[in-house]
Write a protein that binds this DNA or RNA. Structure first.
Lengths: 348, 348
DNA sequence: CCTCCGGATTGAAAGGTTTCACAAATCTGG
DNA sequence: CCAGATTTGTGAAACCTTTCAATCCGGAGG
């Protein structure tokens, strides 16, 4: 029976208190926790009783301190409100659950595109001596990542392919993705195609655009057939804006199809079309990128380039754990191939 | 100059090594870190030089062990892929950044509706001695939460209002939300209204439905005017399914408006309407709930009940930090009032 | 009866930081 | 030049767990 003094704070019980209560030594309590087989059933029962009695909660800090590393993985995501990244994170959770045998946690950190926040999170994670860091960085070639890796915390870059060779990475072939998107549009008979995105900044988007050009070339169409509508970011609002600009073009030069750098932009574009009574796909065919859930759920379901999101996450965790356990680790760069999901927005 | 032996692992340097390199005692290094004012500029510079030289990284486990508590907050979210929760999380980040003076981290954990995962995360967080736990629980009245709070880890329940009084909570008045949604529909002349959601399970949804009934009553309309279309969950697919069932009803009993328990369901419904060439709002007016970004971005922008999502998150963190610092803490239950955002989906 | 063996248990060290009482050095003003 | 105050710096204890060599015990074999 627990007797609690009226005024006394019920101070958190440690293994020492448990040992005292059970009438055993500290080492035995530790054995019950870590090597139950080494302890006779009788004493084990006694110790376990004492633990529940005293509401014992293991102190992870002390464990870690002794062990040197924590049993935590972290994913520093670029944008927590973009469904693409939350799906990647879901894949990571699956892999962590599967691999960790129940003692591996995945924590999510949202940098929200802010380099300062990203740096702050990375610093704290390093201080926590996490098992490893998964990250979709604001800038994949920032030196910070390399430094962390060099200091001994494994880093896996997700959905970007960095230049250096200080860490593993998992990404998707964006040039190919752009290519299949535009090839599809060309096959549907389109010969003037808008490209909507901020391709001047993000490497990603540049690749997709390059793939688009390649598809045009393969069909014997020149690069002038790609009409650039440049946005500042890749949000729904950017898509709306681009749609208005597109609608404002004279019919003689107006594209009959649009390839959007991601689905958010495509959804914005779709909305503008609905407002302006432009029919999709009759007046304008639209292809998005990422195939987020809302792409299929749109009023006119969107054709989109699907990336293996959960697979991306799973693989990233596997690479990370491999790096953390292997002794002579060889950094790998895994590249997945996206696939086109054709829906109503391009099918006449 | 760093001399690195060819084969030697550059073992992580601790404060001890830094102290040795700078020719000072351990205590001084600690002072440089924690009370720079107590150290003369000259020695401080020497110590700092040694730190960068040796690539010193503070060991958070050891700090925590000494301090008793970590400087980490965690939000255990119910569904990482629902934009509503990611927005709540964004509000939490803002508050944590503002309050923490740079040394407070917010980690996100996604229980994905799985009680087992939720329990696992809670256990680990408690072991980590986090500053506090923010949680949108699968079951707000599960005993686990109370136990954790009783053992000394502050808990704030977000977007649910639990029965007990062992912790603070932040929520939104769902009855009122349902009421304004349906009042609006009634004002638009609708007299038979569908309610789409899984109201048998989630308290939340039950409240919204009750608000709907209240609005009907206030307009002199009986509860039979609310047509229940029950779903299993609150996903886009559920909305699509409900839409088909609704369209299948004979015109004599078919509602002219639908109040959806969340925006995902509303988007699914909207999509079915588009497929079946039902005009929104002429054939069917739709009100959603949550006002996620995609609600405004839909082909027919959705009227929706907006919850102060970021505010919810900010307040939750503030309550948590208050509880963690105050001595005699009084648990509070904060309830926000939602507001109706009227858009095209209900305006004829 | 003694020795040896294996299983069960113990005790102490280690891990890196913070804190705090204390010592040393420097300064203030008389 | 001294008493006292102030500024710097020190050393050891404490935080809680894990690990590992050492000890203890009962029993088997001789």
């Amino acid at each position: 029976m627990v007797v609690r003094e009226p005024g006394a704070e019920p101070r958190a019980a440690g293994m020492k208190e448990v040992a005292a209560a059970a009438g055993v030594s500290l080492g035995t309590v530790s054995n019950v926790l870590n090597r139950p087989g080494r302890v006779s059933p009788a004493t084990r029962a006694r110790v376990e009783a004492a633990m529940t009695e005293l509401r014992f909660v293991r102190n992870e800090s002390a464990r870690q301190l002794r062990a040197g590393r924590s049993r935590v993985l972290a994913y520093v995501m670029l944008d927590g409100s973009n469904p693409f990244f939350t799906d990647v994170a879901a894949g990571m959770e699956d892999a962590a659950d599967a691999a960790g045998e129940g003692d591996l946690s995945l924590f999510l950190c949202n940098s929200a595109h802010q380099p300062s926040r990203e740096a702050a999170y990375l610093g704290r994670l390093e201080q926590q001596r996490v098992q490893g860091v998964l990250i979709t960085p604001v800038d994949p070639d920032a030196p910070l990542l390399g430094e962390i890796a060099r200091r001994g915390t494994p880093v896996v870059v997700v959905d970007r392919t960095p230049e250096g060779t200080t860490h593993c990475s998992v990404a998707v072939d964006d040039v190919y993705g752009g290519e299949i998107a535009v090839r599809h549009l060309v096959e549907q008979g389109h010969e003037r195609i808008a490209f909507i995105g901020n391709h001047t900044s993000v490497g990603q988007v540049r690749d997709r655009r390059q793939g688009a050009l390649r598809a045009l070339a393969a069909a014997g169409l020149g690069p002038d057939r790609l009409v650039d509508l440049t946005t500042t970011a890749l949000t729904v609002a950017d898509g709306r804006g681009a749609g208005e600009r597109l609608a404002g073009l004279p019919a003689s030069v107006r594209p009959t199809a649009a390839f959007c750098a991601n689905d958010l932009v495509a959804l914005g574009l779709l909305q503008t079309c609905a407002n302006l009574r432009m029919s999709v796909p009759a007046d304008l065919a639209i292809v998005g990128y990422d195939d987020i859930e809302f792409a299929a759920a749109a009023a006119v379901p969107l054709t989109s380039v699907r990336q293996p999101r959960r697979r991306l996450g799973r693989t990233a965790v596997e690479l990370l754990l491999a790096e953390a356990s292997e002794t002579g680790h060889e950094h790998r760069k895994v590249v997945f191939t996206p696939e086109l999901v054709v829906r109503a927005s391009t099918l006449r």
